[in-house]
Design a protein around this nucleic acid. Structure first.
Lengths: 153, 153
DNA sequence: CTTGAAAGTGTGCATGC
DNA sequence: GCATGCACACTTTCAAG
């Protein structure tokens, strides 16, 4: 899975993470190189999947998504059939921003963004009606202290 | 905080979230409009902060960041002085991808990305030596089932 | 909103270091 | 490998209808 990257590659990635709208010339200047090598390296990193996607980050509050919950899930079901249904439900629902399978006594954690607490309840009721879940704890975020997509290089 | 957006604005945002590298012409075609109105709306949404950042998403595993922890924190300290120090520590550490202040008996949740479990321990020891923390539970992610930055519009 | 035009950028190639 | 220059098509940006 891991790919070999040198200092220059990492500098380029850092610039792209910081601002993905920069021109090749700007990036080349920032990293102390020139257009051709920067362009070739970016192309390779896109092909190899190190760079997965170019996107914009939106302001959730400005869009009226004012509630964020972390959902801790314990299940008694561990068969493949159940898991498939559960994963499908997570992928289908756009309010599920993130989902992880965990080690330990909590089986899954979700991050869910919705307009308000009522919308969370609608989501929750729909989810438990689709798949059997043993135990759920919802943690309500009062304040997003930090949120970054910039991976440490 | 909330901004009024019409159908066209939302379609534009959906396209930008899906692929932030598209040209104005492509977006205009996708949303059934033309370059100038699309350009004006994007400019306004950048100014108003609805569009916060343009960036690239990298593959954490390919970069050797193979461990992801959710950290549940209870604290006994609730004075401003303590909180300032804690927030500063979180902002300074690049491995902290996300941090929320919660309602309920758990005070904070963090999402931390590191190369391996050893690196998490280094982070953890450094954090508790900097600020006093009452109780910590770390949840280790075995598998990232879903991870999206695309907000539901 | 549409047209259109000027300035800037991405992409690719060719040269020599 | 890298820097530089060049070329063309495409894109952004913005003024005027």
């Amino acid at each position: 899975m891991s790919v070999r990257l040198d200092e220059l590659d990492r500098k380029i990635l850092a610039e792209l993470q910081r601002d993905g709208a920069q021109s090749l010339d700007e990036i080349a200047t920032q990293v102390g190189s020139s257009k051709t090598p920067v362009w070739n390296r970016i192309r390779k990193m896109k092909e190899s999947g190190v760079i997965r996607q170019q996107t914009v980050l939106l302001d959730a509050e400005a869009l009226g998504l004012e509630a964020c919950f972390f959902v801790l899930i314990r299940t008694s079901e561990h068969e493949k059939h159940w898991q498939d249904a559960f994963l499908r439900a997570l992928h289908e629902r756009p309010e599920v921003m993130e989902a992880h399978r965990l080690a330990g006594d909590i089986d899954y954690i979700l991050k869910v963004r919705v307009p308000n607490a009522r919308a969370y309840d609608v989501f929750y009721q729909a989810l438990i009606s689709e798949v059997k879940i043993h135990n759920v704890t919802a943690l309500l975020s009062m304040e997003e202290i930090k949120h970054t997509t910039m991976l440490p290089l």
